[in-house]
Computed example of a mutant assay.
Amino acid sequence: MMYTTAALRRIVLIDIENIVGGGVSLPGQVHGAQAAIAEAIGQRDNDHVVVACGRFCVNVVGFEWAGPRRLVFRGGNNGADLELLDILETERVGDRFDEVVVVSGDGIFADVVSFLGLGTDVTVVSRPESCSRRLRMAAKYVLDLDYDPSVITEAA
């Protein structure tokens, strides 16, 4: 069967704290990260988007992320990473999606990305300076994200 690009199912898993360089406390951080991600991956209307963050960031991320998404959160060290890993390891994403996009640079994802890459196209999207070498090597594709966390400020 011939598939068109629009018919392919894609899941986009986003560790927003990795992209913004820490905890998310400002709406501008969410808006800037979302715009940079959409530009990098060519976000489509039928993407299944999952945004992960720590429990102290859930309000700003949940209210400020525009459009449909699944929001997951967990407290503690690597809370957002562990939520995304749980999805990647237990929800059969390789069977359900034609493409997996991991928006993070954390090396914790390297093993699962490598495994998923055996049967699914896996793309990693990260700020170049914050992407682990192991994760870069594990992914089929790597896209550098054009996002500078130091330029986000809020008007007083």
Rank of each mutant, 00 (worst) to 15 (best):
S132R: 03
D86Q: 11
M137P: 08
D121W: 07
V102W: 01
L71S: 12
D144G: 13
G119P: 07
V103S: 10
A66D: 12
G105P: 03
A110N: 00
T123P: 04
R96M: 13
G54Q: 08
L116M: 09
A139V: 07
G62C: 01
S104I: 12
V103N: 05
A110G: 01
L85I: 05
M137C: 10
S104E: 06
R92F: 09
Q43L: 14
G107W: 00
L143W: 10
G67Y: 09
G94H: 06
A40G: 07
C131K: 07
G94P: 03
G67W: 08
V58L: 03
A52V: 13
L88Q: 04
V122D: 01
L135G: 00
D95V: 03
V49A: 03
R92A: 07
L85T: 03
R134T: 04
W65D: 06
A40T: 14
T120L: 09
R133W: 14
D98N: 11
R74A: 02
A52P: 00
R133H: 15
N46A: 14
S132G: 14
A33E: 00
G67I: 10
D121G: 05
S114L: 10
N77L: 08
I87N: 04
E89S: 09
F109Q: 00
D47G: 13
N59K: 12
S130I: 11
N78D: 11
I108S: 07
N46H: 14
S130W: 11
G54E: 05
I41S: 11
D106M: 04
S104H: 06
R55P: 01
L88E: 06
L85F: 08
R70P: 07
L85V: 05
R127S: 02
W65R: 04
W65A: 06
D47N: 12
D95M: 04
D144S: 14
G105A: 09
A110V: 02
A138T: 09
I87E: 04
V103Y: 03
A35T: 13
G76M: 08
E39Q: 14
I87L: 11
T120M: 10
F63G: 13
S114T: 11
D121M: 12
L82H: 08
K140R: 11
F115D: 13
E99T: 09
G107L: 02
E83L: 04
D106R: 03
V102E: 02
D121A: 11
P68L: 04
V124H: 01
V49D: 01
E91G: 10
A33S: 05
C53L: 09
F63K: 14
A80G: 03
C131V: 15
L85D: 03
F56D: 15
